[in-house]
Simulated assay, not measured.
Amino acid sequence: MIETRIDRRFAKLKAEGRPALVTFITAGDPDLATSQAILDALPEAGSDVIELGMPFSDPMAEGVPIQLSTQRSLAHGHTMDKTLQMVRDFRKKDNDTPIVLMGYYNPIYVRGSEAFVKEAREAGVDGLIVVDVPAEEDNELCIPAIEGGVNFIRLTTPTTDNKRLPTVLENTSGFVYYVSVTGVTGAAAADAANVAQAVSRIKSHTELPVAVGFGIKTAEQAEEIGKNADGVVVGSVLVEAIRKSLDETGKATNQTQAAVTEVVRSLRMGVEKARK
């Protein structure tokens, strides 16, 4: 597979001796224009890799904050076409920061896997995280993604044992996303000691970077997790910042973008302290 922006970014950060800050927002939340402004502002605020959620009506792995962000996006008529256009518009200003589309298979399936991968790659997408396509079904989307030059990033969890892990990792590329707690997104805080053991175990099976997510909300937590992980993934705290910034009618305010970037800057300070 050809080298991607994800490969280059993690290699650069490894050379610098610090973990990546991976940030998640839902495309179109709370509306298209505000979401685009937030997306465009994330790199300067400190994001190294961006996960852009593809809104879907049944986000079964998500906790309440991301479910609500999806509802806000869909209520404003957001579509996959608009998500891909957001990436195109982002690429007019930033050709270096990796973008990973994250979500569920249904919106991809209806477009056709190969057609979707081609369109996503041309828009400037570097990777996919699709949580409901198991490793046993790699021919559905994973293989077309790899053949199309897009990293396919898989999730591992505390319940992914050593027997299962090689199957999960077989066609994974870009990085491995370790879900540090069982349950839905934003449900609990990660335990740094358990994460360290898990990252070590995963690394014994792969040379890929390991990014850790779920339950990381503060700079202090990011610092602790970043001492062992190659990347620290944050999402629920960012979409909550959006929600709290909205006015009484649920519309964006002049504080919405700043609410997100302020949190990102704080988290970036945490990951920068992780290896000092």
Rank of each mutant, 00 (worst) to 15 (best):
D7V: 04
V237H: 08
Y105V: 01
T159D: 05
N95L: 15
I66K: 07
V263T: 14
V212W: 04
E3N: 06
R18Y: 09
R72M: 09
L39E: 04
A190W: 04
K118M: 03
D230S: 01
T34A: 06
F90Y: 08
A135S: 13
V133D: 04
S266V: 05
R72P: 10
F90T: 02
V199W: 02
G28E: 14
L84K: 09
Q221L: 10
E272M: 14
P98I: 12
A196S: 12
G231V: 01
M269T: 14
V195T: 12
D81Y: 04
D29W: 06
R268V: 08
A41T: 11
E170I: 00
K93W: 02
Q36N: 11
K276N: 14
A229G: 04
D40C: 08
R268Y: 12
E147F: 07
S73L: 07
Q71M: 15
I146Q: 14
M60H: 11
T160D: 01
T97P: 11
T70R: 00
N106E: 13
N162C: 03
E272N: 15
Q71P: 01
Y104V: 09
S173C: 07
L155S: 04
R265Q: 15
A196R: 04
T249I: 00
A241N: 04
T156M: 10
I153K: 06
M80H: 00
Y178H: 15
P55I: 08
V234Y: 05
V184T: 14
L39Q: 09
R88D: 09
P65I: 13
Y178D: 08
V179A: 11
A190P: 09
E44V: 15
F116E: 02
V176I: 14
S69R: 11
G226D: 02
M86Q: 15
S204T: 02
S180H: 06
R154Q: 10
G250L: 08
I153H: 10
V271S: 04
V232Q: 01
A20D: 10
L68V: 13
L238R: 05
D48M: 11
T23P: 09
D89P: 04
E136C: 02
G250C: 11
D89C: 00
V179T: 10
A258G: 05
E240D: 15
T34G: 04
I143Y: 12
T83A: 12
E122C: 01
A37L: 13
T167G: 15
P107D: 02
I108W: 06
V260L: 05
S266H: 05
R243M: 13
S245V: 11
S113T: 12
A11C: 00
I129R: 08
V117F: 06
T185H: 08
G270S: 03
K203T: 04
V110G: 03
I143T: 15
V271I: 14
E3K: 15
P209Y: 10
D40G: 00
G103M: 05
F214C: 06
T261Y: 13
D191W: 00
I99V: 15
V150N: 00
G127V: 08
A45T: 13
Y177C: 12
N151Y: 00
T253M: 03
I225F: 06
R88T: 14
V117N: 01
P59N: 08
L246F: 06
V110H: 13
K118E: 14
F56V: 12
G28R: 09
D247R: 03
H78E: 15
R268F: 07
A61P: 06
L52P: 05
G250A: 12
S69V: 11
A241S: 14
S200L: 00
G183A: 02
A190R: 03
K273P: 07
D191Y: 01
P43E: 09
M269V: 11
